[in-house]
Structure formats: structure tokens, C-alpha cells
Amino acid sequence: MTLQCPLPIDRYPSIIMAHGGGGRLTQQLVSMFRAAFDDEGLNGNDAAVLGELQGKIAVTTDGFVVTPRFFPGGSIGSLAVYGSVNDLACVGAKARHLTASFILEEGFAIEELWRVVLSMAEAARSAGVSIVAGDTKVVGRGQGDGVYIHTTGIGVVAQDHWEQPSPSDVILVSGDIGRHGIAVMMARGELGLSSDIESDCGSIWPAVHALIEQQIQVRVVRDLTRGGLATILNELGVEHGLGMEIDETRLPVEETVNGACELLGIDPLYVANEGTFVALVAKDHADKALEILRKFRKDSQIIGRTTASAGVVAKNAFGSKRVLDVLSGEQLPRIC
């Protein structure tokens, strides 16, 4: 089925301030979201009344800004869906409903907005969530970057209680790392490089759910977004009073991603992902967990273990170690 944008684009090909004014144009804009999201929750009210949910409820909220808005493997729209879906998956919850709020910049092309909305609808269908309420605001030209999206997700907890992590748990990653960040950098077109690297943007729930269903003793699941694997391991270490030791030779990094990182002088351990997670798992369950994860991504890997001493350390092929600290900011490409 191909959805047609219900807005009369010919008249106003771009967002104008009046789209945020509450009048007919606002109504037309809202009809666009309704057509794409097609959920009965999206009725005339500003709030949705949901059906009964069985079990504990998890809730999360997240804002999305990305340049460019479309990149290989995803868009700001699919990110906005999977971001919240994955945050819920990290607490063992399956996302059920999302709300979405859009800050639109005056002058933003309606046609592009339609494509963003369609990619959200597609991601929502694929993740099995419904978008039940939404809002739009328009800001003046120069006061925003095309579109900002904010989603709030509600999910039902499938795994109520995970044991606290302890030293000698095993660290697994659910797939190769660094693809999203590099795909976005490439798509910005500033590097003079081209590649077929696609973002890993997607739902982690199926893999997390499989671990839960197979009764793997999972301690922690965390998606490897901002700051990448090294940053998240540091956060987990501080949170749980543990150290982490990983084996650099076991890190799954796609060759093209590795090549781009080498050229730019950046470390894939600190590059963002949008559909990959790290799991701390009881030692005895590690092999089984790996077997399950590999059904979803064949490059899932056991990369290390937790330790009693603080800090994140990476062992390399030479037998020496380095500290993986939290970076003070973004990685910046090197001079030479």
C-alpha cells in the first residue's frame, strides 16, 4: 500500500507559521499524521485512552535531532521510534504505545516531513507499537533544524527482576559496533568518502525478548547509543561498583567501519549505535546467551567480563592493556 500525503502540498510546499496557528492548516497537518499512523487512539482529543495493560508498566521519553535527517539504514523518524522502543527493552519491557511530538521549522519541506512520518509509521509497525497521541509546534526559520522529534514510550515489563551484576559476569555485545555513527558521518557528505555502511538503527526487543524467554540470567541490558560501547561500559561500571575488562581482539567491528575510523583517527569503541546492546550475563549462561543472540545477529560476541576493581580496561593482541576512559566530548578527527 502506498500512502498519499493528505496535505495539498501544491499550495504550501513548506511549513509556514500558520501550520502552528491552530486553524485549518494545523488541522491539515494533523490529518497527515493521522493518515500515516492510522491508530484509533489518534482521535480528536489531545490524549489517548489506552486499553488495559497487564503487568508492570515501563515508561521512557527521548528527543531526537540528527543531521542529516535521512541516512543509509534509517532516518530521524525511525530513530525516534526505535530509540524509545530500545530504552524500554533495556528494562525488560516490550514497547506498546508511543506518543510523538514534532517541533517543525518554518520553511521545512512538507514532502520531507511526509517521508519522515512514513518512516516512523514503518518503524512503528515493524516494532509492533502504535503511535497513539501527538503534537506539533512550529518555530520560526532559523530557530530549529527542520524537524525535532520527541517520543514517549509505554511498555509492559516482561522480565520483572534482574539480579544485580557481580564480578565475573560475562559481557556480550549483540552485534558489530560503530555502524550508526559512521553511517551518519558519511551521509553528511563532509568526508569526501563514500561507502555502503548502513546504520544499525532497529529494535533490540526481539533479541532481548529471546534472552528473557530462554531464561538467561541477564543482569543488565543497555543499548549502545551516545558515546558508544566504551562510554556505556564506564557508566555501568560506576552504576554497579564494578570494573570491566574487555578483549579488543573479540570486538565485532565491520571492516568498512574500521577503515573509516582509521582514516578519521577515531575509535569505534566510542561511536554511537542505534540497534545494538551490551548485556551482562551470569557466567554459566554466557554461551547459551551468545547462541541466542547469534540467531538475530551473527556477529554477536562475548567480549569480556566484569571485575571487582573499578575502571574499564581493554586487553589487546599484544597482551598489554589500556584504560578506556569516558571522553570529555565528541571525538574530533585528527590533523594528520
Binding site: 589487546n316 599484544f318 597482551g319 598489554s320 592493556k321 589500556r322 585528527r334 594528520c336
Partner: peptide, 14 residues
Amino acid sequence: GQTHAIVRYGLDQL
């Protein structure tokens, strides 16, 4: 660049 490689790979330790 050499300093970083030395420290990153721990060559001075070896």
C-alpha cells in the same frame, strides 16, 4: 601519533 600508538598498544610496557 607514535606516542599514541605506543601508549594505546602498551608497547612501552612490553
